[in-house]
Nucleic acid binder design. Structure first.
Lengths: 247, 247
DNA sequence: CTTGAGGGATTGTTGAACAACTCTCTACGT
DNA sequence: ACGTAGAGAGTTGTTCAACAATCCCTCAAG
């Protein structure tokens, strides 16, 4: 997300070979990050990993002290994360790790169904090489499940869906999906039953992948639709359980 | 876009009547805007209206002088618009009005088809009241076409599609659609044939609306798919014409 | 024609200062 | 007891000025 290339960049290198293009991108992502972006990257991980529970306020004063950056730079990092949905900003009150409510969860899954199912339904002429990341993610999920590492299962699952959307080859769909999945991760951290939430989808991911490999895109889309409905129901249920215990 | 409400806001006002909720939102959007947001609003209009042609660099020095705000505040406004896709930021070079290339146009329409068609396809039990904005937009478009005001036709068309997506009742789909349409507007300004670009869709919007009113959602989705394909082809063709004249 | 070294202009970042606002707690009045 | 009005502390919003880092252009040397 930080190293998004730009339209005019693409054009300016358009006449050169793909070889140079790749090098250019590497150089760009190497040193081409502002202080604010590095701070954002740091906080992004903290939030996504669940170190900062939803509802937490991020104090400018404290973070300036700890990170050794100026308030202005820190605030710029806040803005970046706010627009990714990983922080929310209340005027004159500060930035907080968002607390998603049930409406948000329903909304997130609504958009996921729209995007992911459509991507699958429109697939055509997919060669095996482009499915490689999906295979790796499914394998990683199965491996983590055997170890009982449900957090890792959740991570592999997120990556699977991100790579699924990437099959469409659309920059904007990728960005949207990244944001949705990051927000969803926030919700996963608020519930205390990672196994119940992730275990069923290890095998369903495998099933989905088989359908894709077989070129059964319409059936895959239908299965994905049900899959996401089930996942939504599970998450909502878990969320309600937690809400009842902490009113 | 500026007055987006927040999850926790919604929850805290959840038990009150809709009456109070509305008033609260008005108050919030009245004075609850930072200087940066007001600056962003100003620049947003300039960009959307086409006053600043794509490729233009927005100088911090000049704008600080003209707008009477500090550089920090201006930079915050830049950040806001950057994340809406209306400006792009090149490190150590400044912010620019984006120049969309053909890949961008294809990508934009790809996402539009995904979202808009899916919204239409999933509609159900739509009462007439919620279609009111669509009626108004189509009428406004027909009116502007009679006057030969093709810019206004384009505006009405954008609003029609925004309201179409709004039927889904999803905050995140609304935001995504808003960003896509804003970017698309950028592309419209680069081509010099607004009539050819917008005229055909005045009547097609009317046709689409009729299908929706009749509850023919599947047929409407199919028509919208073709509609967007045609619009994309038209825009690409116009874009190529212009590129040939200004290499 | 390519390469590399100035130099001017612009952006990136910092730190401090003050204004504006929220939150909390206390005191007052009903 | 209840609600409210206000003061005070603490935090964020905004501005300003300065310096560091980087880009772009020019021009000279190979």
């Amino acid at each position: 997300m930080a190293g998004m290339s730009h339209p005019s960049d693409a054009r300016s290198a358009g006449s050169e070979s793909g070889w140079l293009r790749t090098v250019a991108d590497e150089v760009r992502s190497f040193d081409r990050s502002s202080t604010a972006e590095r701070v954002a990257e740091l906080l992004r991980h903290r939030v996504i990993e669940g170190d900062l529970p939803p509802g937490t306020r991020l104090s400018e004063e404290q973070l300036v002290e700890v990170l050794h950056v100026s308030r202005n730079t820190l605030r710029e990092a806040f803005r970046l994360l706010t627009h990714e949905g990983l922080l929310v900003h209340h005027l004159h009150r500060g930035v907080f790790v968002p607390e998603l409510d049930e409406d948000d969860l329903v909304d997130l899954y609504r958009v996921r169904r729209t995007i992911e199912c459509d991507v699958v339904r429109r697939l055509e002429g997919l060669d095996a090489a482009r499915m490689r990341p999906l295979h790796d993610d499914v394998a990683a999920g199965e491996d983590a499940a055997r170890r009982g590492d449900w957090v890792a299962v959740g991570t592999a699952n997120m990556r699977f869906h991100q790579h699924l959307v990437a099959l469409a080859g659309s920059r904007r769909l990728d960005e949207t999906a990244a944001r949705l999945l990051a927000e969803l991760r926030l919700a996963f951290h608020t519930v205390a039953t990672p196994q119940r939430l992730h275990e069923p989808y290890v095998s369903r991911n495998r099933g989905l992948l088989d359908l894709l490999a077989a070129g059964e895109w319409e059936r895959a889309a239908k299965e994905l639709e049900d899959y996401l409905h089930d996942s939504e129901a599970e998450l909502l249920s878990a969320h309600r359980d937690r809400s009842r215990s902490t009113p």
